[in-house]
Design a protein around this nucleic acid. Structure first.
Lengths: 149, 149
DNA sequence: AATTTTAGTTGACATACGCAACTATTTTAC
DNA sequence: GTAAAATAGTTGCGTATGTCAACTAAAATT
């Protein structure tokens, strides 16, 4: 395994292709969304009480840039920011109807891209692929590079 | 497979973890390099006549930002820019000795990270993983999202 | 009740990035 | 052989991203 490419190289190359493919699909239907915004909408959709602090933890970014990016999503009318019921310091983020529609569209394109990119991949190969991904994520948490919710 | 996470999500999450892990390792030994610079050094090391245009194609970035990033690597004395033998428009990029040393160090850290993250992954799983990665890259080129050297 | 911690906000600064316009050089079309 | 088009690289400008420090308001801890 001496000549093996490091994992970061394999993943980086591939991720770059996926990202570009996704952006291309967004562009094709005039969806004004970048990949990070898509991920943000995805996370906001997953929970109904997610906060900017949660997003900052997830992306490992400063709260201030998360605030600004959320502001952009609010300006686009994809996201709303409301006060937490129990903790006045906190504000929860929620998808608006428009935001949900945009997210759904983006998600469908993402699934479509998956299908295209996984053409010729057997079920067993994909199972092992997912298994590796899970192990990488588990090993990362054990190494404690960082933790997030 | 309805509830399956799209490929872009799986990969994105994982790539983010890998990136952070790598940056952490660089930081630990005071290696002033970000991941994209590392990839750049890697590409420059692969060929001896690579140009800024080639890098712009690879990263799908504007030539002007590639120029500036290359300038930074030149300032760090990791890279040199020399005129192409056959085409006066072109300038080739090469690693300096210092650049090669830095790249080698970064590469070793990258390999080290690979080993840590792939703990518990069987040989068969990894083979399938690589097979999937190859197919993704092949499918991308067929779809012609973009092409690069 | 005072102090510490957390969530969010703002301003300043540095870097990244895209775009247009430019020069110099090579390739292509005629 | 010459003019036009294309390519490689550069520069300036505006916008976005990102970090950091400092702030306010609210909750948790002491």
């Amino acid at each position: 395994m001496v000549n093996e490419k490091p994992l970061s190289y394999l993943m980086g190359q591939t991720m770059n292709l996926i990202k570009l493919g996704l952006l291309e699909k967004f562009k094709k239907i005039s969806l004004q969304l970048n990949v990070e915004q898509y991920v943000m909408l995805h996370l906001i959709n997953l929970r109904e009480d997610i906060t900017q602090q949660d997003l900052a933890n997830h992306f490992q970014r400063d709260k201030s840039i998360i605030l600004r990016q959320v502001n952009t999503l609010i300006e686009l009318r994809y996201v709303a920011r409301i006060q937490d019921k129990h903790d006045k310091r906190k504000k929860n983020l929620m998808l608006t109807q428009k935001g949900f529609e945009v997210f759904s569209t983006a998600r469908n394109l993402s699934v479509e891209l998956s299908k295209e990119l996984l053409k010729g991949v057997t079920e067993q190969e994909f199972k092992d692929f997912q298994s590796v991904i899970e192990k990488i994520q588990t090993n990362t948490q054990q190494t404690n590079f960082y933790s997030y919710c």
